[in-house]
Design a protein around this nucleic acid. Structure first.
Length: 343
DNA sequence: GAAGCGTGGAC
DNA sequence: TGTCCAAGCTT
């Protein structure tokens, strides 16, 4: 490849992204983790807020997990935030080489190479979705990663990624604007979108769930999800999947009894939130409920009780919640005051 | 190697 | 409304 053309294109047109103004390894680390499977425009506001709230590794290490998850709220793949936090607490000093970075939890091959090349100038290649697509099209075959040419590896890596993001897009690539079009075999073939080979898609299951906003006075009940797994550590309304033959009201009373130990009266209906996760879709049929009796389940563990709260709508707004639960809270606040119990 | 893990933008 | 997929990592 005529590397000079790509680098010249990049240096002439590089966008003013906030993480390009720094060589601080911590800032680069944060940006690269946020950018995992996430588009640039989505990341920018999160990145700014994060560095304002946690300007250094030490600041991040000192912060409570709830603050860290709140700063990540809505960005998805929350293990990234938990891993950043964990690593910040564990590391005495930040690694320098890609090999050392690779040992940090949440830092894989891509992120290690990106940090090492951008922050430290190490000659290692990144191989993300963009680079794979660009190079595979250039050669008109599925390629594996290759070492970057001599020069500035950070610029080279970012140039390839930016070309993939702005020009050599998955659909309708803008070949006319491409600085390396004259040597591109995919363009010569007339079907640049043929590469890279696409993986077969699998269909995602759908779940119907009943969710309860359980009122006791002017407060309602929220619980924190387990640290590991889906949406780990985030706060949510209780509920669960509807079983065959159940109405949503029956499902609601059963799930709340199993999950919280409460007996409640169910109704009225509040809202249905449809949401799509990476591997399933869900409808959250949400009802107001009224607490009748029962203490929160699992009272034996002091730690467990930290994950159960009665809150006002404003207090709930300060908790880190998954997006679908945030929609429920939005509906709640839009409705104004809590409903009167139905007798 | 495959599955689990979020959300929003583009079309 | 639906589909694709994004600056991937862990188990």
């Amino acid at each position: 490849m005529r590397t000079g053309r790509l680098l010249a294109w990049y240096r002439k047109g590089a966008r003013d992204l906030p993480w390009r103004r720094t060589r601080d390894p911590y800032s680069i680390w944060v940006s690269e983790v946020m950018l995992q499977q996430t588009q640039i425009a989505t990341v920018i506001p999160y990145y700014r807020r994060w560095l304002k709230r946690f300007p250094t590794v030490r600041a991040l290490a000192r912060a409570p997990m709830d603050d860290v998850l709140k700063a990540w709220e809505g960005l998805g793949y929350y293990a990234r935030a938990r891993n950043l936090h964990k690593a910040a607490r564990l590391l005495k000093k930040l690694p320098r080489t890609a090999e050392e970075w690779r040992a940090v939890t949440g830092v894989g091959a891509y992120t290690a190479a990106a940090i090492a090349s951008i922050a430290h100038g190490e000659r290692v290649a990144v191989f993300d979705g963009n680079v794979r697509r660009v190079l595979s099209r250039f050669e008109a075959r599925d390629v594996t990663e290759a070492p970057p040419p001599r020069g500035k590896p950070g610029d080279w890596n970012q140039a390839l990624m930016e070309l993939g993001q702005r020009v050599c897009t998955p659909r309708a690539p803008r070949c006319g604007e491409c600085p390396i079009r004259s040597d591109c075999k995919a363009r010569a073939s007339g079907e640049p979108e043929r590469w890279p080979l696409k993986k077969a898609k699998k269909e995602v299951p759908h779940k119907e769930v009943a969710v309860g906003v359980i009122w006791k006075g002017g407060r309602f009940y929220v619980q924190r999800r387990a640290e590991e797994g889906l949406l780990g550590g985030l706060w949510e309304f209780p509920g669960g999947k509807r079983e065959k033959g159940e109405t949503f009201e029956q499902c609601l009373r059963r799930e709340i009894r199993e999950e919280t130990g409460f007996r409640v009266d169910a109704g009225p209906f509040l809202v249905t939130v449809r949401h799509r996760y990476s591997h399933f879709s869900v409808e959250l049929h949400t009802y107001h409920c009224f607490w009748r009796r029962g203490k929160a389940a699992d009272p034996s563990s002091a730690r467990a009780s930290e994950g159960k709260r009665w809150v006002t709508p404003d207090e709930a707004g300060a908790l880190a919640m998954p997006t679908a639960n945030r929609r429920i809270l939005d509906a709640l606040r839009a409705a104004g005051r809590p409903p009167a119990p139905a007798f």
